[in-house]
Design a protein around this nucleic acid. Structure first.
Lengths: 167, 167
DNA sequence: AGCTGGTGGTTGAACTCTCAATCTAGGTGG
DNA sequence: CCACCTAGATTGAGAGTTCAACCACCAGCT
């Protein structure tokens, strides 16, 4: 309990600055997307990942990982996108459990319509307010944070040996 | 349309690194909070702001700004927190439109119980994976991004003069 | 073939968030 | 004092997310 390494004053400032920027920035970006294109950022992200994939199609599990969403979330999201006619689900060949999600032409059109406003917002609110040095730093920082989070999974995997509790 | 300043390859890398880290990190933090303390980060944030305020109480509008949520969101959130007995709403004196939200002892206890796990997660996944230089940079970056977003409001305010369209 | 554990994916319910509408009260000009 | 506009806050509906089952299928073992 008392062995918690609480944050120093300086650390608190850093933490609040980072966290506030995250919240405000992502709220801004998401808001812009909803207002101008009628979809949340998570859906845009899905369309982008699909558009970049070979044949504009991906296995659901791959799409989930690429678009940073849980499988459950993706499943719901794809159902919604399918209603819009922006994607279609096809059975995956080779594995009868699996499904492939494919971007339709309508979906691509919707994506193309949404992209300019989105990129403009990102440029104005991110690239235009930071120096080149800060942008370089931000890239490395982002990578370090992501790497630190992924390590979580590896640890969990290592614990599968599970010598402490009966599995 | 074609005058969009699209992102260069390098910029795309930076943008993806930043955005991925944001999504993954905040998902991790939120998940930790929900799992270990049964509330979303947004609620924790509200409790924290209240606990830091004079008399552990704030006007709804002030609390909304402090906790980075919209008024609507705060209203719903406070209703939920009130059901838990963690906060109470009292009429604000002096302005019969307003309400003051006050942290109860139970709320403070819940906050105190949630804090260690939260701080530990933040330290492990943020402070422990970045160098001191990166943390300094991150603080400045965060401030710059927030400042850039706030500028939005000022512009909107400046346009209130409204010489282009009839208001 | 029959078991068993794990993987791919979906589902429903509960919860949270957003947006637009609404309500009440304060403030200001006639 | 009344009309009107603005500010503080809430509400309800609809959309999106999470979590915990759940189903179907694959793979390895007996």
């Amino acid at each position: 309990m008392s062995d918690v390494r609480w944050l120093t004053e300086t650390e608190q400032q850093t933490w609040r600055a980072y966290m506030t920027a995250n919240v405000e920035f992502s709220a801004y970006i998401d808001r812009q997307m909803r207002r101008d294109s009628g979809m949340p950022m998570a859906y845009y992200e899905i369309l982008v990942r699909l558009s970049e994939a070979d044949g504009r199609r991906l296995r659901m599990s791959e799409l989930a990982e690429a678009s940073l969403s849980s499988r459950s979330r993706l499943s719901h999201a794809v159902s919604a996108l399918e209603k819009n006619g922006w994607v279609v689900r096809r059975p995956a060949d080779g594995d009868r459990r699996g499904w492939v999600c494919e971007l339709t032409d309508e979906g691509f059109t919707a994506l193309a319509a949404a992209a300019p406003g989105h990129v403009t917002a990102v440029r104005e609110k991110l690239f235009d307010v930071l120096t080149p040095e800060q942008l370089d730093a931000l890239r490395d920082i982002g990578r370090a944070i992501s790497a630190g989070l992924r390590q979580e999974c590896e640890e969990a995997r290592a614990e599968d040996v599970c010598d402490e509790e009966p599995c």
